[in-house]
Design a protein around this nucleic acid. Structure first.
Length: 130
RNA sequence: ACAACAGUUCGUUCUGUCGCUGGCAAAGACGCCGCAUGCGGCGUCUCCACCAGAGGAAAGUCGGGACAACACAGAGCACCAUGCUUCCUAACGGGAAGGAUCCCGGGAUAUAAAGGCCCGGGAGACAGAAAGUGCCACAGAAAAUGACUACCUCCGGGAAAAGAUGCACCCCGGUGCAUCACCCCGGCAGGAAAAGGUGAAAACGCGGUGUAAGAGACCACGGUCCGGCCGGGUGAUCGGCCGGAGGGGUAAACCUCAUGGGUUGAAAGACCAAGUAUACCGGCUGUUAAGGGUUGCUCGCCCGAUGCCGGAGGGUAGGUCGCUAAAGCCUGCCGGCGACGGCAGGCUCAGAUAAAUGACAGAAUUAAACAAAAUCCUGCUUACAGAACUGUUGUUUCU
RNA sequence: GGCCCCAUAGCUCAACUGAAUAGAGUAGCUGACUACGGAUCAGCAGGUUGGGGGUUUGAAUCCCUCUGGGGUCA
């Protein structure tokens, strides 16, 4: 099981980010807000994701970096759950995870909540693919 | 040894597993080219290893630059900034050393007081108020050509018991009249700035002479300011002598003087690729031009037929460079009180572009403070657990 | 990343080039009016002028610095 998090797995295109936030679907998972949309990509990876911590809640760059790195770490270690549900379906997805909590949370809690929202995304993907 | 203050330096480390960004070269895949047909070259991608990977403040964006574009010919006005001296620096509103002023503490001398002198510590945007304008509430006579009270002179009036002088009468000490002094009231009069409750601030301080009353009007002592000469110092300035002045404060009020500043900032800018609309509406002009050109204005300057300007709208939002070898860092020596500079040797130390330093476990002391590069450098300011060193002061113990 | 602006009573705003009690509307409290409430009338309270420092006799105002908030630039 690969645990990498390379550039192809991150959402970098300005154009796709604009499409995602204007036309994507949204749900909430306690400290996070998830925006997702099915989209065909130029890369073989099943999902492209971006992580964001808004400046409104965390004024200092150090705190934003800390939370975003914990989110990235949790996604990197658990993303195989999501990838397994996409194998063979041929669909691709773009997704944004925004931290909406107002205080800094430990890694263990972030890890548990990331697993929950990945399972929700798997359900949404199965609705489309049947 | 402990505590306080000041300054300087550092500001987590190691091991294992997984992961991120850049570099490097070996290997593999793909594409192109050359031919000697399975080898070479070039480009892109992947990738085992290996190497490097946030700060003293990276922050605030406060000051100054480098660099870039614009119109980097030029002139004037306006505007802005700075303001003791010398030095450091690429430059600065930064820094070093010094000077004067002010404040605090102590001491000596002297005494009417203020002040000055010596020692120690501290502070500040520290040019000019003697070029001009404005302002200085309330209180107070008055806040800057000072005159309200009180004072003096002059003028007018009043009062009269007592005073002085002169004249007259009675007749030998009295009476009457006039004038003066004293007293009171008044004045579009003058003098004076000494006393006066106020105020943040009151027209050099104090003592005398002087005068109608007074006053730096004059004198002694002291203090402030200006100019000249002599001496010390690169200079600010200090000391001495001579002459003069008497002038409230405020320039982080306008202002004056001196010095400096063109404007805009890497979303600057250069190149490549892709794509769209040479469409629509309104306005303007014919070469001695309309109009335009990231300077506040005027002049000047430049562009100006593939017409220009404005409105509304359409397209793109990818890549390369700028982008890190620099006013660079470390060590040693030399010069300088110091900031700093010079010489020699060595080193190469993030370069991302939705944006990289993390997670977990263990150990050292245990959980480690403040806090994240975005073109770069330099200073300032602000935040900050802990550690080390140096100096000063105080207390205690030992010799 | 650069540039610019703002902060005054619980709320919305004044106070012009410094002048001594910082003012108005609304909200609040008390009383009057009313059978009760609203409206109205009278009165009261409410401010470290975002924090700190400086200039000045005197600062909401002028200067410096910090904090918080907002705008703008391909």
């Amino acid at each position: 099981m690969k645990q990498t998090f390379s550039k192809e797995e991150r959402l970098c295109s300005h154009r796709l980010i604009g499409i995602l936030f204007s036309k994507g679907h949204t749900f909430h998972q306690k400290p996070f807000r998830v925006t997702w949309k099915h989209e065909s990509l130029d890369f073989p990876t099943p999902v492209q994701v971006l992580m964001s911590v808004p400046k409104y809640n965390f004024r200092k760059a150090v705190h934003r970096n800390l939370i975003r790195r914990r989110m990235k770490e949790a996604y990197r270690l658990n993303k195989q759950l999501l990838y397994d549900s996409f194998t063979g379906t041929g669909t691709q997805m773009i997704c944004a995870i925004t931290y909406t909590g107002k205080e800094i949370v430990d890694y263990d809690l972030i890890d548990a909540k990331i697993i929950l929202l990945l399972q929700r995304l798997i359900e949404e993907n199965e609705k489309v693919t049947g």
